[in-house]
Nucleic acid binder design. Structure first.
Lengths: 237, 237
DNA sequence: GAGTGGTCTAGACCACATC
DNA sequence: ATGTGGTCTAGACCACTCA
């Protein structure tokens, strides 16, 4: 009987698996460090290092004095960070959203290439995002089925303004990471109309792939807005 | 005689001060963890935590098996990451730069406001950045005197293609962090001419403030390029 | 092989949240 | 008061680098 002692990296992998498999549910507390240390026969410091790694990834959330929990994901405000809306105003602006259309489609080649989705069927959602009633962004969102099938019963009016918390609540899918690609283009007629602008107006296109706790892509999104209102702040390290 | 034991955060502050004061020079090794632990009468683990914090900030660089060293900064390629140049090509492209002009100026109000510089005099450098001989970016760079006075003796031809390593080598200033602001505008005549484009062509403007090891702003830079070539990838966490 | 950082242990005690 | 995570100790041993 060989007894291999586990390193913190192997432990991190094991803990991650518990999240991926659903044994530890999103938003719920995980066992204490002490109990995990005992269970795996390692020192507390070792378990702590494993947990720290997952916390770094955003998979686990730590709060001093309370239990560590599995993340329930981002809040979805992150799309609007690209635009200058009421920069000075210290009071909170509430972003709104209006779903225009929701239907079922078959995935096209480009999306499959980018996401690697095997799904034969996707949900396609059109929506407008607004600030103070002003249309700011026109978005098309693709979600793979059957993971998101619970959204199929929703009417346009039933959708929340922020999608990511809704994914967590309704479909138990936590978005913890996303990759954005930002580029410049001149608006096409249909895009321009949605934003009450003229065809050929400078536009900024943001395409996003969002990932869940397991690192799998769970959303593809393409958004367009007014390039002249675009302002992005980035930190370089 | 009170003997207060130091926590890792106080230690991190002390170590940071050694870098800021110049007692630990950029690019040079710092003492070993064991010797520091002894010097401050703490356990090695505590010193390690302090060092980890500075390494996280990019102030210190760790290499397993070798001494930990003070960072000598970024390599300066980071400006071109905004553009799609030879995305596929697996072989390295070497960015070039051509300094057009260097002169001494008094700081204008906007720059002072953004950087907080007290300096009465700045170096102002105009340059073009190229890929495969193609002009891609037109940049204006401001550097405070007297910190950068050694650059005043340089002729246009003497400047390296990458500025940040040159700052480290010539002026002992390590740039470890920068903040970029990206926005779109229609090119003015002078900007357009520099890039062989027509006035009014869509341009992307990147303004940057770069910071040294101590967190002080040491460079202000404003760059403009072709918006149609702009492509930025960002990760959201 | 000598010196460095990386991992791990088995404890002690502190700080925060909750009841 | 109890349970949680955060800090710290004083060691042991491993892994990497370089002369």
């Amino acid at each position: 009987m060989t007894k291999t002692t586990l390193g913190y990296q192997s432990l991190a992998a094991i803990l991650r698996a518990k999240v991926v498999s659903g044994e530890w549910r999103i938003g719920k507390a995980i066992p204490s460090e002490a109990s995990l240390a005992k269970k795996f026969s390692v020192a507390v410091g070792t378990i702590r290092q494993a947990i720290a790694e997952l916390a770094e990834d955003g998979v686990l959330i730590k709060h001093h004095g309370k239990s560590t929990a599995v993340s329930s994901g981002l809040n979805g405000q992150s799309m609007l960070r690209f635009f200058r809306y009421q920069l000075e105003g210290q009071k909170q602006i509430l972003p709104q959203a209006k779903v225009l259309d929701i239907k079922q489609v078959t995935p096209d080649r480009d999306i499959v290439k980018l996401t690697g989705w095997k799904s034969k069927s996707l949900l396609k959602i059109h929506r407008i995002r607004l600030i103070n009633g002003q249309p700011l962004l026109y978005e098309i969102i693709y979600l793979p089925l059957p993971q998101f099938k619970k959204l199929m019963q929703f009417k346009s009016k039933d959708f929340d303004d922020l999608f990511y918390p809704m994914y967590a609540k309704v479909c138990e899918i936590a978005v913890i990471k996303a990759k954005d690609q930002v580029s410049f283009e001149l608006m096409k007629k249909t895009d321009a109309k949605m934003l009450s602008m003229k065809e050929g107006h400078p536009g900024v296109r943001v395409t996003r792939i969002a990932f869940d706790l397991t690192g799998k892509p769970v959303e593809y999104r393409s958004s367009i807005g007014d390039a002249m209102e675009f302002r992005y702040a980035a930190e370089v390290h």
